[in-house]
Design a protein around this nucleic acid. Structure first.
Length: 148
DNA sequence: GCCAACGTTGGC
DNA sequence: GCCAACGTTGGC
């Protein structure tokens, strides 16, 4: 799950001392991942995008079920969507809790050097989704590199 | 700041 | 429903 650290970083999440709302996703593929693929209790990598350097910085956990993203109905929010029907909201949010911050950032270059991550979606050229599934093998390979 | 990639919009 | 134009993402 990607976030720009200038907007919301893993340190912000660590300081939250409880669930934080992952909101603002305005892409249908990402919405569907949040709705259908992510399950309560799943672990997720926290990825800093548009960062120096960009990369995986830690782990968080999904808590609870998906629910309508309140920012879509807030005219003062940058995520406001005037065309989202109140009775059938377009956009979802999920809650996450901090689990762990890695001792170092696994940069894109680091990740590309790890055997077994050749097909990892986040490394694919041109892919821009802010949430992507990770296979179990990929997960284990990243964890092993983070602990090395 | 550039630009590749790709999602979205809207005219037809 | 096609597709060109436009907007956004995000690495570099």
């Amino acid at each position: 799950m990607k976030s720009e650290p200038d907007v919301y970083s893993i340190d912000d999440l660590a300081k939250a001392k409880g669930p934080a709302m992952w909101e603002g996703c305005r892409n249908y593929t990402v919405r569907n991942f949040m709705r259908d693929t992510m399950k309560e209790g799943d672990l997720a990598f926290f990825y800093h995008s548009n960062a120096d350097p960009s990369g995986i910085v830690g782990i968080m956990k999904i808590v609870g079920e998906p629910y309508p993203d309140p920012t879509q109905f807030d005219p003062n929010s940058e995520y406001y969507d005037a065309k989202s029907p109140a009775e059938q909201p377009r956009w979802l949010a999920r809650d996450v809790v901090f689990v762990e911050k890695f001792s170092r950032t696994l940069t894109l270059a680091d990740l590309r050097a790890i055997p077994g991550l050749e097909e990892m979606l986040v490394l694919r050229r041109g892919q821009r989704l802010s949430i992507m599934p990770v296979t179990e093998d990929e997960w284990n390979a990243v964890i092993a590199a983070a602990k090395a």
